[in-house]
Simulated scan of single mutants.
Amino acid sequence: MEKSSTYNYNVEPFTEDICGNLAWGNLGNLILRCASLHAGEHGFGYPQMIKLHHAWVLSRLVIEMESLPKTGEDFGIETWVDRLYRQFTDRHFSITRPDGTPYGHATSIWALIDTETRQPADLEQLPNGGFANVLIPERPSPITPMGRIRMKNAELVLTHKAAYSDLDINGHVNSIRYIELLLDYFSAELLREHPVHRIEMAYCLESYCGDTLEVYHDIDSKNANRHLFEIKCGEKVIVKGSVQL
């Protein structure tokens, strides 16, 4: 079995944004779906890990796109893992056209949590060597890792009460739903003229149904096209992120 896997999709009606591109939220969910499929095929997916009382938790996600596939277009998502280091592992993605040229790439960091103690597991101590035989160390991330989020003049720009449609199977607010909340800061007119190029997300804590989420915004002092965000629940920071146009 190949160490990397590619999954093929089509931009179907009702999966697009206002510009006729695959919506960022749908792209994000497909990226996470491909991570789950690849892990399951190689023996370390959700069904296998839950038997060991462990579950994967997304810590970082960066998606960088030169362009997005449009309505009716076919595209593939390739995913692979290049390394693990104690409590974390890096997983990467390439979003490609049928001819193999990239629309863009993504990179992510995951932790494996003990569902009983809620403590991180040591990935180097998994039974039967874990998934070390799947690693492709010669294929590091195709994009730069997440930059720092330093907000000096944070302004509250949006308030959202987490509800039923925000939740995933674990009862938490879906990781990709936070991306959509950041994008809701921008007007449709602005994003028509200045498409999103890169999204960075750092997941700090979980939030639940009924939580009031406050979205704070600032501009990166070194890059006017990079918008910085924090999503808070009370005094707790749930997510830090950035959107670069």
Score class of each variant (00 low, 15 high):
M1Y: 09
K3G: 09
S4E: 13
S5T: 13
T6W: 08
Y7F: 08
N8A: 07
N10A: 11
V11C: 08
P13K: 07
F14E: 12
G20D: 03
G20F: 00
G20W: 02
L22C: 05
A23I: 03
W24Y: 00
N26A: 07
G28R: 02
L30Q: 12
I31Q: 07
I31F: 04
R33C: 00
L37I: 08
L37R: 09
H38T: 08
G43C: 08
Q48R: 14
M49I: 12
I50Q: 15
K51G: 15
L52V: 06
L52W: 08
H54Q: 14
H54M: 15
A55R: 11
W56V: 06
S59A: 13
L61K: 13
V62K: 14
I63K: 07
E64R: 15
E64W: 03
E66K: 12
L68E: 03
I77G: 07
W80A: 03
V81Y: 02
R83A: 06
R83V: 05
L84N: 08
R86F: 04
F88Q: 13
F88A: 09
R91A: 04
F93M: 12
F93R: 05
S94H: 04
R97W: 02
P98L: 02
G100E: 11
G100S: 09
T101I: 05
T101W: 04
A106H: 08
T107R: 08
A111Y: 05
L112N: 14
I113L: 10
E116F: 02
A121P: 07
L123V: 10
Q125I: 04
Q125V: 01
P127H: 08
N128P: 06
N128T: 09
G129Q: 11
G130S: 09
N133L: 03
V134G: 09
L135E: 10
L135T: 11
I136C: 07
I143Y: 01
M146Y: 05
I149A: 05
R150G: 06
K152L: 08
N153F: 04
E155D: 13
L158P: 05
H160I: 00
A162Y: 04
A162R: 13
A163R: 14
Y164F: 15
L167T: 12
D168L: 07
D168C: 12
I169K: 09
N170Y: 11
N170S: 11
H172G: 14
S175M: 11
I176R: 14
Y178L: 00
E180V: 06
L183A: 03
L183P: 02
Y185V: 03
F186P: 15
S187F: 01
A188P: 07
E189A: 15
L190S: 14
H194V: 06
H194L: 03
P195D: 00
H197P: 03
H197F: 01
R198P: 01
R198E: 01
Y203A: 02
Y203E: 01
L205H: 13
S207E: 00
D211S: 02
D211A: 04
E214G: 08
E214I: 03
D218T: 09
D218F: 03
I219V: 10
D220W: 03
K222E: 15
N223G: 06
N223V: 03
N225H: 11
H227N: 06
L228H: 10
L228K: 11
L228M: 03
F229K: 00
F229T: 01
E230Q: 10
I231C: 03
G234T: 14
E235T: 15
K240R: 15
G241A: 01
S242I: 02
S242N: 08
V243A: 02
V243Y: 01
Q244N: 06
Q244F: 02
L245V: 05
